[in-house]
Design a protein around this nucleic acid. Sequence first.
DNA 1: TATAATGGTTACAAATGTATAACTATTATT
DNA 2: AATAATAGTTATACATTTGTAACCATTATA
Lengths: 150, 150
Amino acid sequence: MLKSKIETIAENLMTIHPLLFRSLSKPMKARTSITPAGLFVLRGLKKNGILSMSLIGKYLSMPKPHITVIIDRLIEEGYVERHHDPDDRRIVNISITEKGLTDLDEINQIIAEELKVKLLVLDADELEQLSVSSQNVKDKLLYILSKEKV
Amino acid sequence: MLKSKIETIAENLMTIHPLLFRSLSKPMKARTSITPAGLFVLRGLKKNGILSMSLIGKYLSMPKPHITVIIDRLIEEGYVERHHDPDDRRIVNISITEKGLTDLDEINQIIAEELKVKLLVLDADELEQLSVSSQNVKDKLLYILSKEKV
DNA sequence: TATAATGGTTACAAATGTATAACTATTATT
DNA sequence: AATAATAGTTATACATTTGTAACCATTATA
């Protein structure tokens, strides 16, 4: 019985995360107070500039009340800001601050340092493959997500 | 300022998860009582046959007490079994049951069904790329992990 | 044999994430 | 103008994960 391509992709994608995430999160946790969800929001804001609460919720597939909590905390820490949309005052737009940007960079470097040690067992060619493949997976998922939001 | 290759890989790997995991987990949660960590353990057991508690802990980068809780619950549900190692009676080996295997297949199909809908926006060529890339990333991470355990 | 080290469990506290309902403010629809 | 729909918040309960310390049984070491 041959596994379908979709099943293989599903298993691959579901397996990637737990193999690395926890070990990369630990050094981050030791040095910053930011949560995994908060970090992901910061990355989204850095890339997109400004996002509404609802868009962030869709982006993370998280219930709105949780987004409120996450943003409240990021604001406390000075990483993001709330802006009421002038065109539709129901909408709350979130932007990343200077501090958010610099601290995000710092966190990324901490994580990269940690990853670097692990990647030592790969040669240059394998590293290049991992770079290309991970970029490809990420891009495809972002593409899929962008199509969903219509 | 050019981002290093390692930083790019780190960001890619950290971003992949939240883009999909929650939306794939929801249908699973609706139909089974298994937790994400439990599911990951089942996958590891299916692939490796038998794993000790410590190895599972390393595999998931989780503290041992949590592994005990996860295994207790999988045993309650009839998915895995404990075996004391005859050569070293301190060691507890875990094996997956028939029920564990069949239910794991079922869960994988539920997740694949969910993913299938999302992947409709990709053409055959892109799908193939995603398949190859995700496999590559997973294999490389497993390879790195296997080197760590020495 | 006494001591240290290992593998695992128990107990507990705290952080994080999930889910739902009720609510306010604002905008869109009739 | 009344009603419905949307965006977001507050409140609450619960599930899952993380982290630590203390402990037992077994094995390795001195």
